[in-house]
Design a protein around this nucleic acid. Structure first.
Lengths: 120, 120
DNA sequence: GCTTGACTTCGAGTGTGCTCGAACTGGAAC
DNA sequence: GTTCCAGTTCGAGCACACTCGAAGTCAAGC
């Protein structure tokens, strides 16, 4: 599929797709006879995984590292697993943090509700 | 307390504390006779609240809006509550998103473990 | 009374992750 | 065969949230 079709599927812009490729997050995508990118389903799968990592706050730098490891095949499986485990821990910590902050938010909302009632 | 003491307490730098003031996230802080900022406990409490909001991903723009409302006193209680409720919903959505992504992460880790065992 | 060090303001610079404009190209529709 | 559209590259620009350097001030310790 074309870059714009791929962009639509993964929920990124065509700009970003080209930029990801340039940044080494994605293998150079196949081209048609006119030099236009042709994305395969595997390309899209990879991009979807990247968007997940990105959404969880993984820096582009780490995503690139991961992409490099993936390119080197099975011998980097352990390293890739370690990278994911470390990231999972960060995501868990982040969820914990958000839940803490949510408590404060809820507390504040309660306070405001009480104050609003008292002002009637 | 001084700007550096306040910075230490809230976990921000002195640069950021001055910048927050400049950006209107914080009321102009009291000064001593030499023109140096003197932070009160209330100032610190306010800053701590701001760091929570910030950590949950609230844009500085919205924090400024909240600060402006707070300055206007009780008549903006409803608006402040609404602002917090909307933000709470975003935080909840974000937690949900992270939990989804966490599943993918765990799935990937499992796959890697399996593949590593098979390669022995 | 001099040094030191933490403060002040101001404007400029940084890092991250895109986002876009300009100039060009090539295949498809009419 | 011209128009049109979606693609191409390249470098520049942008939004956000800080971060810092420079030049100056002031109180406290020696």
């Amino acid at each position: 599929m074309t870059v714009s079709e791929a962009a639509e599927r993964v929920g990124l812009t065509t700009y970003t797709l080209r930029w990801y490729e340039q940044e080494g997050l994605v293998e150079p995508v196949d081209r048609d006879s006119a030099g236009r990118r042709r994305y395969s389903d595997q390309d899209v799968d990879w991009l979807v995984l990247l968007t997940r990592l990105r959404r969880t706050g993984m820096p582009v730098r780490d995503m690139r590292r991961y992409a490099e490891l993936a390119r080197q095949g099975d011998r980097t499986l352990g390293e890739r697993r370690a990278l994911f485990e470390a990231h999972r821990d960060r995501v868990l910590a982040r969820i914990g943090e958000l839940e803490e902050d949510l408590k404060v938010l809820n507390y504040k909302i309660d306070i405001y509700e009480k104050m609003e009632r008292e002002l009637l």
